[in-house]
Nucleic acid binder design. Structure first.
Lengths: 208, 208
DNA sequence: CGGCAGTTTGATGTTACTCAATTTAAGTGG
DNA sequence: CCACTTAAATTGAGTAACATCAAACTGCCG
């Protein structure tokens, strides 16, 4: 067996490309090395729910650690590089290394928390609140990976992605974007999100 | 230290009573021994999202295993009995017993899957589909714990609980219940859910 | 019998969806 | 550099789904 923790694959995926399919059995634990991706659940009638946007360093398929079939499908949003660790190696370390166990269990708990908060937002929040919440969650994650000047965050999502993430139509997302821009809260265009009034964004979107 | 896996507390909670609060640090890993309870996230303006209904045998607070603060609040729906295991004991077994690790990690994965599916339902499904989905998920879980005759399932939820679980108002839940009853799909009254047309219920509520 | 919590029903209001047209932005090939 | 094409975003008008408000009804318990 190869050394645990070793990257066994490293490959590019072009923007829009499929990286994993729900219910398939994974070969590796996949990690996003560069670019953006997203997890989603596809319904047979064409609707889909985007569950999480993934940034460099994120694990694409946490369930793969335990050799279970994929819980979600994953697609590349931009051009990405993906690294793959052998599941065997990771599970080996999970069994023997208590620091690794702690890392993985914390990761799992964060996943549960995020999914539950998303459910609360989708169940209870209005269109405006949902969109504000999405922005608010992305801001610190983008900031952790990019140099941010003048509150301008790289933002490669199309309005269709936002719509699928918050359970609205792209048309309605466009209207809300217009509203938020007009009211001087955030302004999204040309792949950049500019946060103008952070306190207001928090008031709208924070989970309290 | 007490023997791991030992029940250290065992206590009743009356219907409607609080069992755990989000963000508090848990003392024990709590297990529901009898009755119904539910996990939810409470918002400061009074709205709340019910995330899961809990039946006997369910762990009320899975995150407690790792000593993290509660991810959700928990309330008793009916009168319940709750058992508490010391977190220390469970974590001890988690570290040393690989079967225990596997059980817990599977449990965690199921939690992530359920929360993600809930998010998909809340984000994408119509009122009717959401309610059908809720019923559909409950049916096998109720059946595993009760003798079912003539497709009649014990169902202690008030319409307010259903509303908070699917993100609708109680008034609208009442209308949809009326519709489903009239169309001969399911009929809910007096604490009993009667499934009349299971295939139709699946067609409406299954996640495909 | 009266009171209370929960459900049902009706009327009306609001939010978000649908459909369709227009504008904008970003290529692409001449 | 400029028509031409195409994908994405915006805007408007009409509609459907769900919320709100309020009243009536039900079953239950004292």
């Amino acid at each position: 067996m190869e050394a645990p923790g070793q990257i066994t694959r490293f490959f590019p995926v072009r923007a829009g490309g499929q990286i994993a399919n729900r219910n398939q059995i994974p070969n590796d634990v996949l990690v996003l090395c560069s670019g953006w991706a997203y997890r989603y659940i596809q319904l047979s009638d064409g609707r889909r729910q985007i569950l999480q946007f993934l940034l460099p360093g994120d694990i694409l398929s946490p369930e793969a650690i335990f050799g279970k079939s994929h819980l979600f499908s994953v697609k590349a949003l931009t051009e990405v590089m993906v690294g793959g660790f052998s599941t065997g190696g990771v599970r080996e370390r999970y069994a023997t290394d208590s620091a690794m166990r702690s890392t993985i269990s914390n990761y799992g708990i964060a996943e549960i928390r995020d999914a539950a908060e998303l459910a609360a937002v989708l169940g209870q929040y209005s269109a405006e609140e949902r969109i504000a919440h999405l922005m608010l969650r992305l801001v610190p994650r983008i900031a952790a990976r990019n140099v941010i000047r003048e509150h301008r965050y790289p933002f490669p999502l199309r309005q269709q992605h936002v719509a699928d993430a918050v359970g609205l139509t792209p048309v309605h997302v466009s209207r809300i974007f217009g509203l938020l821009r007009e009211r001087g809260v955030v302004s999204i265009s040309e792949g950049v999100m500019r946060v103008i009034d952070m306190p207001e964004l928090e008031r709208l979107g924070a989970l309290r």
